[in-house]
């Protein structure tokens, strides 16, 4: 286990270009999971309906409507 931890630790420590890339990855993941997912992309059905039955009833209602 210690060997594995040391493998990753040494790997990250000796990075050159990789360090910038990790900053980009972390910023990107923060933007994707915190900013976008929480504030802009709530799950439409999960945020409106408490259970699967209500969700399926809503979708059934939606897909059996023929709009103009």
């Amino acid at each position: 286990m210690r060997k594995i931890v040391s493998f990753y630790y040494e790997g990250f420590r000796n990075m050159t270009t990789g360090r910038n890339l990790w900053i980009i990855i972390l910023v990107k993941l923060f933007v994707i999971f915190i900013v976008l997912k929480l504030f802009f992309f709530p799950d439409f059905l999960n945020s409106r309906f408490a259970n699967g039955k209500d969700r399926s009833n809503y979708v059934l209602h939606e897909i059996t409507k023929i709009k103009n």
Partner: peptide, 17 residues
């Protein structure tokens, strides 16, 4: 590194849009 996880946004869009 730059491309990884960019596809996740498509999955968010499925659920939202």
């Amino acid at each position: 590194a730059i491309g990884v996880a960019t596809g996740l946004i498509l999955e968010f869009e499925f659920g939202t849009n």
